[in-house]
């Protein structure tokens, strides 16, 4: 096994087991999706109108749950020092950690997303696009969220700081993904929103690790 695949296997195992892993994220997602009808009323017409957007907001919040500890545990137990000393560039290490986080939470959340959207009253015809948007959006959440997690390394109440840094970065995917779903439901062209979501996810994957590595180096120094 190469160093990269060795690290990916370990990080995925850690992310999968960390504090309940995907079950906590999916459970939180289901909880938010259940609370919403209680807050806004259970009339099917009203719920159906907000279902795609509500499912997206719940997805963003669920993705946020596991982000704050993305680098913090490695920083606290000394692993980050040792990973930084390896021949694998720190940027690649950060990307692998985000990819593992996405595999452990983004992927299960994407599979749960159509169930929550339909439960909220969205049309079952949206299911395919909901999964596709959640997969891309989850990737953007992981890689943009990693920036916030790295920037808050060593800070007191780092989890709260991570949320404050990260939530503005979650705005574009929520707008693009929610827009694509709303367009499809209204019978309008949806590909523009989906393409923008894909572009944002690609930018997050390409640029996020550079920022994360710089923030990690700063925290270690």
């Amino acid at each position: 096994m190469s160093r990269v695949s060795t690290l990916l296997a370990r990080e995925t195992a850690l992310a999968w087991g960390k504090g309940g892993g995907p079950m906590v994220a999916v459970g939180f997602y289901a909880g938010v999706a259940t609370l919403l009808p209680l807050a806004v009323g259970s009339e099917p017409e009203r719920l159906a109108a907000i279902a795609p957007g509500a499912a997206w907001v719940a997805l963003a919040l669920a993705a946020l749950l596991s982000l704050d500890r993305l680098f913090e545990r490695d920083y606290e137990d000394g692993s980050l020092d040792l990973l930084t000393l390896s021949p694998v560039p720190l940027e690649i290490i950060c990307a692998i950690k985000c990819l593992a986080q996405w595999l452990a939470t983004g992927l299960p959340l994407a599979l749960a997303a159509p169930v929550a959207a339909i439960a909220l009253g969205a049309s079952p015809q949206l299911s395919g696009l909901v999964v596709a948007c959640a997969l891309l959006g989850g990737l953007a959440f992981s890689f943009m969220g990693g920036i916030g997690a790295a920037l808050s390394l060593g800070a007191r109440r780092g989890g709260l700081l991570t949320a404050v840094i990260v939530l503005p970065l979650f705005v574009p995917p929520v707008i693009f993904g929610g827009g694509a779903l709303a367009s499809l439901e209204a019978g309008l062209p949806w590909s523009a929103g989906f393409a923008l979501l894909g572009a944002y996810a690609a930018a997050a994957v390409a640029l996020g690790p550079l920022a994360m590595a710089a923030a990690c180096r700063n925290a270690l120094s």
Binding site: L7, R10, L14, E76, D77, G78, S79, S86
Partner: peptide
Amino acid sequence: GHLDGLKSSRTARDELAFWTGF
């Protein structure tokens, strides 16, 4: 360092195997 870089939730074998391979 002072900190040993070991994950408490993993087995000693998994940790040693990871750092050896990595």
